[in-house]
Write a protein that binds this DNA or RNA. Structure first.
Length: 280
DNA sequence: CGGCAAACCTGCGAGC
DNA sequence: TGCTCGCAGGTTTGCC
């Protein structure tokens, strides 16, 4: 799925086209995705004006003029595409279609249906069950080596698993964990607690740098992800290690035949990629 | 509580 | 060409 950079890119696309617009039509084409849609979702959205678009972790927050907030998650394969022409025949996995007063058509398409969409009240957002346990935003000032160290302390699980845990830091997924660990020179196998301190001092800026570069590139397009415009992101061309098993490490000078290049391993049922020479 | 596997669902590429 | 298998950016649940 879309991880933080992809979700952020989608939010920016939505923001540019939706803020200030009124939703004049809400079409719900199935009862729900990972969670059921609220029964009254179309009624609660229709006629509302969008006042802001926000993001928390991988959740998209559409703030409305009546104090309501639509919460969306793209799961693994979710897309939000903005078209300008109403009336196009619905695609195979188009689940929710929003039409604005100036003719934008926002389609929530999700082949695998791991995404979700629900409604909340602005006043209760901070305590919402989907958001309440989330860790710090990695691009916020509160995400410091000290703060990360505190959340890693006492954890015996591998740092790879800890960084995927959204209560440790919010918004990282399988791609950007591998990339960040590479740039910090830390093996995905290291026990999380051992990364507290000096390791966190390298990891925090590495995470920030990777995420910012990915956002600047419009995210990473592997299979499903596209921007709201339908354009692909292009950060995938800049991966140092992700999905590059057997290929040369960008930091090592040596012969791949000799070193084996980038390694892939399975942790917590997900693939990790790393350079054993530069990460320990 | 920690950690791992499986589940949710569909699509795609590889291999036979 | 067509089948089966394995794998995929996430999150939750259930079982040691």
């Amino acid at each position: 799925m879309p991880e933080l950079p992809e979700v952020e890119t989608v939010c920016r696309g939505l923001s540019a086209r939706l803020v200030g617009r009124r939703l004049v039509r809400v079409e719900q084409r199935r009862p729900g995705l990972r969670l059921p849609f609220p029964e009254d979702m179309p009624a609660r959205l229709t006629g509302r004006r969008v006042v802001a678009i926000g993001r928390r972790a991988k959740y998209i927050l559409i703030h409305l003029d009546d104090g309501g907030v639509a919460i969306l998650h793209l799961g693994m394969s979710g897309r939000l595409i903005i078209a300008e022409a109403p009336g196009a025949p619905p695609g195979r996995h188009d689940h929710v279609v929003l039409t604005t007063d100036d003719g934008a058509v926002v389609v929530f398409n999700d082949a695998r249906r791991f995404g979700l969409m629900t409604l909340a009240l602005e006043a209760e957002l901070a305590a919402h069950p989907l958001l309440v346990g989330l860790g710090p935003e990695p691009l916020s000032p509160g995400f410091t080596p000290k703060a990360l160290s505190a959340r890693l302390a006492g954890r015996g699980s591998p740092i790879k698993a800890a960084l995927l845990d959204q209560t440790v830091v919010a918004g990282l997924g399988n791609i950007y964990v591998s990339e960040s660990l590479f740039h910090a020179g830390i093996s995905p196998l290291r026990p999380a607690a051992s990364v507290a301190g000096a390791g966190a001092g390298r990891l925090v800026p590495a995470i920030r740098r990777v995420l910012k570069a990915a956002i600047a590139a419009g995210g990473s397009s592997l299979r499903d992800y596209v921007q709201t415009s339908g354009e692909l992101g292009y950060f995938q061309h800049r991966f140092a290690v992700y999905d590059r098993a057997g290929q040369p490490c960008p930091g090592c000078c040596c012969d791949v035949a000799e070193t084996g290049g980038i390694r892939r391993l399975t942790q917590a049922n997900r693939s990790s990629y790393y350079c054993p020479r530069r990460q320990d």
